[in-house]
Design a protein around this nucleic acid. Sequence first.
DNA 1: GTAGTGCAATGATCCATGTCAACGCTCTAG
DNA 2: CTAGAGCGTTGACATGGATCATTGCACTAC
Lengths: 232, 232
Amino acid sequence: MDHCTTCVVRNRAICSALEMDEISLLGKMGRHHKLIAGQTLIWEGEDSLLVANVIEGVLKLSTSLSDGREQIVGVVYPSDFIGRPFGTRVQHNVTALTDAHVCTFSSSDFDRFAQTHPQLEHKLLERTLTELDRTRRWLLLLGRMTASEKLAYFLLDMSQRLVRPDCANEGPIDGFDLPFGRQQIADILGLTIETVSRRLNDFKVQGLIAVPSRRRIEILDREALENITEAA
Amino acid sequence: MDHCTTCVVRNRAICSALEMDEISLLGKMGRHHKLIAGQTLIWEGEDSLLVANVIEGVLKLSTSLSDGREQIVGVVYPSDFIGRPFGTRVQHNVTALTDAHVCTFSSSDFDRFAQTHPQLEHKLLERTLTELDRTRRWLLLLGRMTASEKLAYFLLDMSQRLVRPDCANEGPIDGFDLPFGRQQIADILGLTIETVSRRLNDFKVQGLIAVPSRRRIEILDREALENITEAA
DNA sequence: GTAGTGCAATGATCCATGTCAACGCTCTAG
DNA sequence: CTAGAGCGTTGACATGGATCATTGCACTAC
């Protein structure tokens, strides 16, 4: 939680995300926060509007009903932005799934900065449109897919998104560690942990995947998983 | 489907949406299309990327699985934008729910225009962020709500969004005509028509709503509907 | 009027997923 | 070693919503 107005650590994530000169952006403003897995990001002050940029780690965005039912509505990775610029409050919780490092900006600082850097708005718009598309595909998943279809889609999606940054080679990988426990998978897919467990076991029995440890998944038959999502 | 390069009809919607001078935008480019209810907007050529602005009417964005299951992933109203600027293909169908009037721009024209008008990008970003928020709340609905909760939420949402443009007075209205048939309500909420029909009837019996005709809804007990969505 | 068409409502049954409860791993602390 | 906590798995059972089939109601065409 070290406040740093003159930001020593170069914010590589934000710069590479925006394809901008590092120096122009940095040392500007921004508070760096380290979060440990499970910790929720507090939008300090309750009425101070914030925007944040993920530097390291994976975080979830979630909403709940008053009786405790929870739905994860977004998962953010390094270089992604969280929050609502331009004066609207964000209305979901932000929780670290792994240890994480984020950089927050007050909404007013951010807006002021955006005005002088049209490239920022452009990049942000592109990313927001991409996120909207992703979220809309998610609607199809939640509204119309069976548990098996949801899980197959989820596993394939993860195999694309969890590509290690150090492996520059593109393309999905067949073995990966989920940043999620069973409860979180359930909260993403709109299921219960029991159903997640059972359908995952089905896949295992059918030889489509291997689960060598709690969070490790190995895809053995990608094509079969694709067939499950695409029709049924 | 009259092509109009020098656009005579002033595109009020797009201008008011952007809070820009009408003249600056118009006569630029843009093809006007009239769609009749049920008609699907064809992104002509299949590889020409388009952006569109709704001038009049209500349209749905939908995706389907190969076996016919359909999920509506967005509903757009006058002044809303459809499509993906910046060179990505849009991946859902756009269908008119009422007779509609849209104005389309080639993606390249639109992008070129956007570069010289940073306000356009700004407004577009604001709208996209709002739409993303709305879509994320929809995830909660599809993933975690029961049929009754979904319907109550839907009715309340409609009562806010279907405010006639001529009624300048803000606030939700208690009687309105849905631009949807039962099947479309089902496709929005991830239900079947039968369930929609049954739960709607429950509300009727309980005196929460009246349904004087197929598409007309009158909310009699708003508070009760709110209680249904917010907890249960 | 009748016939036909397109939706919506209702009824009977089924099944996928939720619910509740028990059990089993694995890791840590002592 | 044992105790306990935290997850994940498995089993038995309940149920909300889907499915299938029928009926009803407007509206149009003739």
